[in-house]
Computed example of a mutant assay.
Amino acid sequence: MELKTTTLDPLINLTRKENGNKDLTDFANHVTAGLSHTPKKLSSRYFYDGPGSALFQQIMELPEYYPTRCEYEVITENKSAIAAHLASEGFFHLIDLGAGDALKTKILLKELQERRAAFEYLPVDISEDAMQQLSSSLEKEIPGLNHQAVVGDYNDSLEWLQQNKSGRKVILFLGSNIGNFEHEESLGFLRKIRSHLEPGDSLLMGIDLRKDPDTILRAYNDFAGVTAAFNLNLLHRINRELGGNFDVNGFIHYPIYNPQEGVMRSYLVSKQEQDVYIQATGRSFHFNAWEAIHTESSYKYTLPQIQAMVEASGFTLETIFQDKEGCFADVIFHAV
């Protein structure tokens, strides 16, 4: 079947630029709530400004950071089987949530194009710069690919896609991003995805599996200190965008893995008693010596947990693909 071409706008922006201060207001409100909470917390969603995204690209290339390599192996070794499944029922919309640079997705895109599969690729990301760069790279690396990038958060993008893209859908959620949700939140998110799908649609999701705790800990506490810089960049971002006066050198990156819960947690810990004023909030926040801000959780799953999660969110489990070491899984969920 011939690939379809598109004359649509190559990039749809759902971030409501007419409300130019909305994102900063939301950020300021989140910081106020998080630093007023006991214990203090901030969301990892705010890691990914320009410098943060650049640091994460470096993290993915670190020798200690196994998830990217393992998922790359899974998709490379199983690209034929995955593509055959995705393309088995005619034309479909391939929706890539949190696409970033689409490094791993491009393996599937090239395989689908070689098969002359009929599909439209719809990468979704909150970063407009990332989507502009991806659109440009796709035009060079995969000429003739039918694609349209969407800039927005997951909820707004899923709503827009449901309203504007009729027909069969396959959602990609790669990179073990589901692990950043607490368990109840992950079920809520998967149920939200399911509510935007019809029976017969699919979800291909990357999931980090439980393994040697030392292997996990090293991935979030690399020798070169890139992950520490990534975590600390959150304070730099507050200083840059919200007028904060964090002394970033007064905090340390502290990760810890709990093997009973299967969760990696990262913190920023104040090395001394201090007060931080943040202009956009109109407030100062007090830190005791060695007080921590929880910034990220990353859950690791067992195969029985994956099965239970699939069933609890309105899907059936179709196929599990794993790397040779059993460190990572890409799982196809089928909407019922």
Rank of each mutant, 00 (worst) to 15 (best):
E159D: 15
D222I: 06
G167T: 09
L204A: 14
E128D: 11
N180M: 11
L209I: 08
E198D: 14
I126P: 01
S137F: 05
G179N: 13
G225E: 13
S127D: 05
S137E: 14
G200V: 00
R218S: 12
I171Q: 01
V150F: 01
A118I: 03
Q163W: 02
A130V: 11
N164Y: 03
N177G: 14
N177K: 11
E139M: 11
E128G: 08
F189T: 03
F119V: 13
R210L: 11
H147R: 11
N180K: 10
D214F: 06
Q132K: 15
N155T: 12
P143S: 11
S157M: 02
K192S: 12
E141A: 15
L217K: 06
S135A: 13
S135K: 06
I216H: 06
E139Y: 00
Q148H: 02
A219M: 02
N164K: 08
Y121H: 09
K140N: 14
N146K: 11
E141F: 08
R116D: 13
E128V: 09
L203N: 06
G144P: 05
H183Y: 14
D156I: 08
N177A: 14
I207E: 05
S136A: 15
I178G: 09
E184P: 03
I171Y: 03
F189M: 12
H183N: 10
V150N: 01
A117N: 05
F189K: 07
L204R: 03
F181M: 10
R194P: 04
R116C: 09
E182C: 00
L161W: 13
D212G: 03
M205I: 15
I207A: 06
V150M: 00
L197I: 02
R115M: 14
G167K: 04
A130K: 05
L172Y: 02
Y121S: 08
I126H: 00
N221Q: 08
E128Q: 14
L204T: 02
P123E: 01
G175N: 01
F181C: 01
H196A: 10
L174C: 05
L174Q: 07
I193S: 04
L217D: 01
S157Y: 04
K169M: 02
L161V: 15
E182Q: 12
R191W: 02
L204F: 14
G179A: 12
L138F: 03
